[in-house]
Simulated assay, not measured.
Amino acid sequence: MFPLRDTIPRVHTPWAVWCILAANLAVFLWQQTLTPGETLRLFHFMGVVPARFAHPDWALTSGYPPGGVIAFAAHMFLHGGWGHFLVNMWTLWIFGDNIEDVMGPVRFTIFYLTCGLAALLTHMVFSASSTVPVVGASGAIAGVLGAYFLLYPHARVTTLVPLLFIPLIFDLPAVVYLGIWFVTQLLSGLTSLGSDGAGIAWWAHLGGFVAGFVLLPLFRQKGRCYYCRFPEGRGRGVIRAPHDPEA
């Protein structure tokens, strides 16, 4: 499934989302100037190799220098290819502005990075001995999805499902779209236990999603307006502030 758009309009200019998108784009374009060997080295030192931190003695004998904690933030801005980059950035573009609406740019940025860190730590719990670098923004973006699931369950997500050579496009309630996404990640994570997950950090996605769901109430900014819909009136939307008694 691939999201094309949602039905929740933004209220505020999403400065943080734009800046995060721009930062990811700048880093990705810089990556394109590197040779394959330089890219691999970049991923091993600026991405997170779980075994590097879980087994420091092994890391030293394998050529990793001490420290390297900058990778815990840097890995969120590295991507493995055009598909990886475009899917992540498009998903952030679709869902991120509505979450920034209720937080403001500073809180959203901290929320985003915190979810990315929670996603990474979840992956490391399940794959502590992995020597495969973790790169990408998907863990942090999963946190955005978790917050969206809690805040806008009655939104509609226009979804593309490629069936062989026939593209199917239809609307799904956000609670259904994100529920299917979560179950897919969970089943994939369970089947990948004991392996490197075929290059996909399924448990990072799950950890990020749960972090976003849990952290949303802590990062919401009182008095900041946002757009909401109600189940009893699907076509009706109102601008409302979080302190509103009916919010």
Rank of each mutant, 00 (worst) to 15 (best):
M124S: 06
T122F: 01
Y152I: 01
G81P: 11
F95N: 11
N98W: 00
F108N: 01
A137T: 08
H84I: 04
A71H: 06
R107Y: 12
I99D: 04
A147W: 00
P66I: 04
F111A: 04
G146C: 08
T114I: 13
L120K: 01
G116M: 03
S130I: 11
G96S: 09
S138Q: 08
V102T: 11
G80P: 12
T159W: 08
H154I: 07
G67I: 08
P153Q: 06
P105I: 04
R156K: 09
N88F: 08
H154Q: 08
D101G: 03
A147N: 05
V69D: 06
H75Q: 14
W93D: 02
H79P: 00
G116P: 15
T114M: 06
A147M: 03
E100I: 03
D101F: 00
T91S: 12
W82D: 15
V106G: 14
H123W: 09
M76K: 01
W93N: 05
H154C: 11
P133Y: 05
T109R: 00
P66Q: 07
V144R: 00
V125D: 03
V87Q: 10
G68I: 06
Y112I: 02
T114A: 15
Y64V: 13
A118P: 14
G116T: 07
V132K: 01
V106I: 13
S130W: 04
V87L: 14
T109I: 08
L151M: 11
L120V: 05
W90Y: 06
G96N: 12
G104H: 09
R156Y: 11
